[in-house]
């Protein structure tokens, strides 16, 4: 098993390499002179000054040299300096990363708490009104724009009922939890419909397998068969889909952080776009991709623990 994990980690390296190459390319695709973009707020610079800054930043070096320097700087945790705040980009990102993680993890928990029971119940009651209701719920889940759902929650629970704060993040633990409710519920909508559908179909599939029929045939109770025999195997495809859709969840987080003024890296990136703070934008995008890669790797390793068939391959 250690060998399997090691192989997965090694396979990850070219991907990380590719992703950093992509963000490097992204930086160089930006039209216009980087020095002028960086100094956009300052006074007009003379040609000589521009040349000196270019030389200092190494922008006159050939691209391969710049690329190697970009990678070594990244390894040292140096992502450059933000035009807007004049502080290290890596500092800005690490400051705000926990907020994005808290938001996404809370949303995943909400998705599991809601989608699993609904999907499984729908499979067990196949063809009844419960099934129809659950699938209609799932259909709306995939068809409602999540950010608009957030605006509606804001309107109802923030403005009309005045139960919850609509914008920003609370300082005290209780305030913090209260301010987390609306954004995380909104974000959970991104995966809710899909996971409900997958939970249902995966449970239906397992229920049709021979070993489940055998368990029933030898007289085990319905509850025991459904939850002890069928459910554990039905959970594996659900894990696959949640991990596979983690990227989509992060994408949703960017928009939803902006809607609710949640101070994560998604909002950091969007605000940076309008400030033309390109280093913040590209590095945040890189951090998002690295998060996706790590989560997928973690899921693969998790599989070896929960599914012995992989362990013995």
């Amino acid at each position: 098993m250690k060998k399997y994990i090691l192989r997965r980690v090694i396979l990850m390296i070219p991907l990380v390499f590719g992703v950093t190459t992509a963000t490097f390319a992204l930086i160089h695709l930006i039209p216009g002179d980087p020095v002028e973009l960086m100094m956009s707020n300052a006074r007009q610079l003379t040609q000589e000054e521009i040349h000196r800054i270019r030389e200092k930043l190494g922008l006159n070096d050939p691209l391969p040299v710049q690329y190697v320097r970009y990678l070594t700087n990244l390894l040292k945790g140096d992502m450059g300096i933000s035009v807007r705040s004049r502080s290290d980009v890596s500092y800005e990102i690490t400051q705000r990363l926990p907020d994005t993680i808290i938001l996404t993890v809370t949303s995943i928990c909400l998705v599991l708490v809601l989608a699993l029971p609904i999907g499984i119940l729908s499979a067990l009651k196949r063809g009844t009104w419960i099934d129809t209701a659950a699938m209609t719920f799932a259909l709306f889940g995939v068809s409602i724009p999540a950010f608009w759902f957030g605006i509606m929650l804001m309107l109802i629970f923030g403005l009309y009922l005045d139960w919850l704060p609509t914008v920003g993040q609370g300082k005290t633990p209780i305030e913090f939890a209260r301010s987390l409710i609306l954004p995380s519920v909104t974000l959970s909508l991104v995966l809710l419909g899909l996971v409900t559908r997958v939970a249902r179909s995966s449970m239906l599939e397992v229920l049709s397998l021979d070993y489940v029929r055998t368990a029933r045939a030898k007289g085990l109770g319905a509850k025991w068969v459904n939850f002890r025999h069928a459910l554990p195997n039905a959970l594996i495809p659900i894990l696959t889909i949640v991990s596979g859709q983690f990227a989509a969840l992060l994408g949703g987080a960017v928009v939803i952080e902006k809607v609710f003024g949640w101070p994560g890296i998604g909002r950091l990136a969007v605000d940076a776009i309008f400030a033309r703070d390109y280093l913040v934008v590209t590095n945040t995008v890189l951090v998002f991709a690295l998060m996706v890669i790590v989560v997928n790797l973690a899921t693969d390793i998790l599989y070896t623990y929960i599914d012995p068939r992989i362990r013995f391959q």
Binding site: G18, G251, F288, A289
Partner: peptide
């Protein structure tokens, strides 16, 4: 490589 990025984030970038 493209799939490692959240697609919406890459589009935004």
């Amino acid at each position: 490589i493209i799939m490692s990025f959240p697609l919406l984030v890459l589009a935004i970038a």
